Amino acid sequence: MFENLLELLKMPFVVDAFLGIIPLCVLCGVIGTLICVNRLSYVAGGLTHGAYGGVGIGVYFSLPILVSASIFTLILALIVGFLILRYKTQSDQFIGAIWAFGMALGIILLELSHGYKADMMGYLFGNILVLSS
């Protein structure tokens, strides 16, 4: 059993994944705790899934995906923040609408884009094995 683990650790991408997951666990634990304590889990879910629209924009218009997703998510966060401050009693409805809008926009633009499409589900769930040193 341990021989298989040692064989696995000889592969550089597996070592990079193990080294990358350690700070990621600490960071996610801290941020996740802050999100839960401040009761913002639905906002975080809405923004992270809404970011998929930015991925779709990046692929469709051949833009850097990280930049397009970041800018799109920032715009969504500003809209959600404004709507929550203005209409406190209906915040869940706005967050749900932003969530659905971002996901739908991303799926539509990805389907309309031409050429090679990478594994787009990786942008939603990630892939620890693509970390580099």
Results as ranks from 00 to 15, higher is better:
Ile57Asn: 02
Gly58Cys: 08
Gly58Glu: 01
Val59His: 03
Val59Gln: 02
Tyr60Ser: 06
Tyr60Leu: 13
Tyr60Phe: 15
Tyr60Pro: 03
Phe61Ala: 13
Ser62Pro: 01
Pro64Gly: 07
Pro64Cys: 04
Ile65Asp: 05
Ile65Ala: 01
Leu66Trp: 09
Ser68Leu: 11
Ala69Ile: 06
Ala69His: 09
Ala69Glu: 07
Ser70Pro: 08
Ser70Glu: 01
Phe72Asn: 07
Thr73Asp: 11
Leu74Asp: 03
Leu74Met: 10
Ile75Cys: 15
Leu76Phe: 03
Ala77Trp: 10
Leu78Pro: 15
Leu78Trp: 15
Ile79Ser: 04
Ile79Thr: 06
Ile79Phe: 09
Val80Asp: 09
Val80Trp: 01
Gly81Ile: 04
Gly81Thr: 11
Gly81Leu: 03
Gly81Trp: 12
Phe82Tyr: 14
Phe82Ala: 09
Leu83Thr: 05
Ile84Asp: 00
Ile84Lys: 12
Leu85Thr: 13
Leu85Trp: 10
Arg86Phe: 09
Tyr87Cys: 08
Lys88His: 11
Thr89Phe: 06
Gln90Glu: 13
Gln90Lys: 14
Gln90His: 10
Ser91Met: 14
Ser91Gln: 15
Ser91Cys: 11
Asp92Val: 10
Asp92Gly: 15
Phe94Ile: 09
Ile95Gln: 11
Ile95Trp: 07
Ile95Ser: 09
Gly96Phe: 06
Ala97Glu: 02
Ala97Asp: 05
Ile98Thr: 07
Ile98Arg: 08
Trp99Pro: 00
Trp99Lys: 00
Trp99Met: 15
Trp99Ala: 02
Ala100Gln: 13
Ala100Leu: 14
Phe101Gln: 01
Phe101Trp: 02
Gly102Ala: 03
Ala104Asp: 11
Leu105Cys: 08
Gly106Ala: 09
Gly106Asp: 00
Gly106Phe: 04
Ile107Phe: 08
Ile108Ser: 12
Leu109Lys: 02
Leu110Trp: 10
Leu110Asp: 06
Leu110Arg: 03
Glu111Ile: 14
Glu111Gly: 13
Leu112Asn: 04
Ser113Gln: 04
His114Thr: 15
His114Phe: 14
His114Lys: 15
His114Gln: 13
Gly115Thr: 12
Gly115Cys: 00
Lys117Phe: 11
Ala118Trp: 09
Ala118Cys: 01
Asp119Thr: 04
Met120Thr: 13
Met121Tyr: 05
Met121Thr: 15
Gly122Thr: 05
Gly122Arg: 14
Gly122Val: 10
Tyr123Gly: 04
Tyr123Leu: 05
Tyr123Cys: 03
Leu124Ser: 11
Leu124Ala: 04
Leu124Arg: 06
Gly126Ser: 12
Asn127His: 06
Asn127Ile: 08
Ile128Gln: 04
